[in-house]
Design a protein around this nucleic acid. Structure first.
Length: 412
RNA sequence: GGCCUCAUCUUCUAACGGUUAGGAAAUCGGGUUCUCAUCCCGGAAAUAGGAGUUCGAUUCUCCUUGAGGUCACCA
């Protein structure tokens, strides 16, 4: 593949906030695109009308903006393949569905949900996996748009290559007649993403491990549609700090914006998220965004899941903070000063910052760490101590050295 | 239960089939520092188990075990 043709996408469903687990997929897609000087596309997969969360689309945009994952095409800015919101693309799915119907590769599902559930329960009771195609109707009715439209699959063994997982293969028993269009007229993810990726010329599909099991179905669909599959890259899950569960909102995965609100640096977050499941093979731990773009590669992504360890994020953020000049640090912490600091000027606050920079892990700690610089002591003995000329630390406050804005290592 | 995937210190991870299995976080100890932190030095800490291939296996193969995913008109 020519590098200028690399087009990756981040295509979440607007069903809530972004957390470290799902934003990593977006970060990796972005890195692949930027490294290859390709395009990064942000698409919204909003075909499940019942799970939509208001404001989730704006939240997503805010997250990628703050993390610096700039996009070239998207549901907010448009692009050559607009619209990029699946709910606005219903017309583009129709001809593809019709093509399958005409070829005898799609049919109307005549059963009620209750009937299908009964089949499902039957399979469960006999401890067998459920396969709809075992109940495939012999003479399905003409599809009138009110029933689900199902894919008439061609079950067979399949093998394919995954840019992260390597060579994979499955037997015919995993291929089934998946639903393409739901009875409400919206396509399923399974159908819509394949059409959109093809129409939008997506070169790499980078997504989480939960899609691994349905990939054989997608390959079957690609074949029926006559579409050459893109490069597939499956990311391992990020595990919650406790237990063995995938990191999820339910298990307390934090909103990415919450980290920003607590005063984590976007570049530290990006560094941290990238190193969850990826490293460049050297002993380097701290990476700038530019270095990540240069060094990232899908084939060095870990196959196994990585546990989310906030202690490591804390350390990494502290390390990034220590590298900042006082001026730059001062600029970034503007929103974190406590009320008692209001009457103090910039010069004084920068001096205070210089004193705490080395131990600062995230900006929300600032009030706690600096309160005594902004309050008059009430105890007489403390006052006496403060005026003790032998107290070197306090003398530094009068020192002019911090006005030079040197990084802390350069002082002394 | 079927199918798929994965498996190195507590955690994130490194190691063309040949290393005293390395680094980082956390932790413990020491040094620097008027405190804390930073910084420096050091300690403890791992190849899940069993076969096989090989002169030699963390690395290749198989089995076992464990973990995860999936079997939705969710993505």
């Amino acid at each position: 593949m020519k590098s200028q043709n690399v087009r990756t996408r981040y295509a979440p469903s607007p069903t809530g906030y972004q957390h470290v687990g799902n934003i990593r997929t977006g970060l990796f897609a972005w890195l692949v695109a930027r490294q290859a000087k390709g395009k990064f596309i942000v698409r919204l997969e909003d075909t499940d009308r019942s799970r939509l969360v208001e404001g989730a689309d704006q939240h997503l945009l805010e997250c990628i903006r703050i993390l610096g994952l700039d996009h070239d095409e998207g549901f907010d800015i448009g692009g050559p393949y607009a619209p990029y919101r699946q709910s606005e693309r219903l017309e583009t799915y129709k001809p593809w569905a019709q093509k399958l119907i005409d070829a005898g590769r799609a049919y109307a599902d005549p059963y009620t949900p209750e009937e299908v559930n009964a089949f499902r329960q039957q399979a469960r009771d006999s401890k067998k996996p459920f396969l709809y195609r075992n109940h495939r109707p012999e003479n399905p009715p003409v599809w009138d748009g009110t029933q689900p439209l199902r894919f008439k699959s061609d079950p067979k063994p399949q093998s394919w290559h995954d840019a992260v997982m390597g060579d994979l293969s499955t037997g015919p028993e995993v291929v089934d007649d998946i639903i393409l269009i739901k009875s409400d007229g919206f396509p399923t993810y399974n159908f819509a993403h394949i059409i959109d990726d093809a129409e939008m010329q997506i070169s790499h599909v980078i997504r989480g491990q939960e899609f691994l099991a349905s990939t054989p179905n997608y390959i079957n669909l690609y074949e029926a549609l006559g579409i050459t599959p893109p490069i597939l890259a499956t990311m391992p899950h990020i595990l919650a700090t406790e237990g063995n569960k995938k990191l999820s909102k339910r298990d307390g995965a934090k909103d990415v914006l919450d980290y920003i609100r607590e005063g984590f640096l976007p570049e530290a977050l990006v560094n941290f998220i990238a190193s969850l499941g990826w490293n460049d093979g050297t002993e380097q731990e701290e990476f700038s965004v530019a270095e990540l773009i240069e060094k990232f590669s899908l084939d060095r992504v870990q196959k196994s899941g990585a546990r989310f360890d906030e202690k490591r994020l804390l350390w990494l953020n502290g390390a990034h903070i220590r590298k900042l000049s006082i001026d730059s640090l001062y600029e970034k912490v503007a929103d974190f000063w406590q009320p008692s600091s209001e009457s103090y000027d910039e010069t004084y606050k920068k001096q205070v910052l210089g004193l705490i920079q080395e131990r600062l892990k995230f900006f929300a700690e600032i009030p706690e760490l600096t309160e005594f610089f902004f309050t008059e002591p009430t105890d007489a003995s403390v006052t006496e101590l403060l005026h003790d000329p032998k107290n070197k630390q306090l003398r530094k406050l009068d020192d002019t050295e911090y006005r030079d804005h040197k990084p802390p290592q350069a002082r002394r």
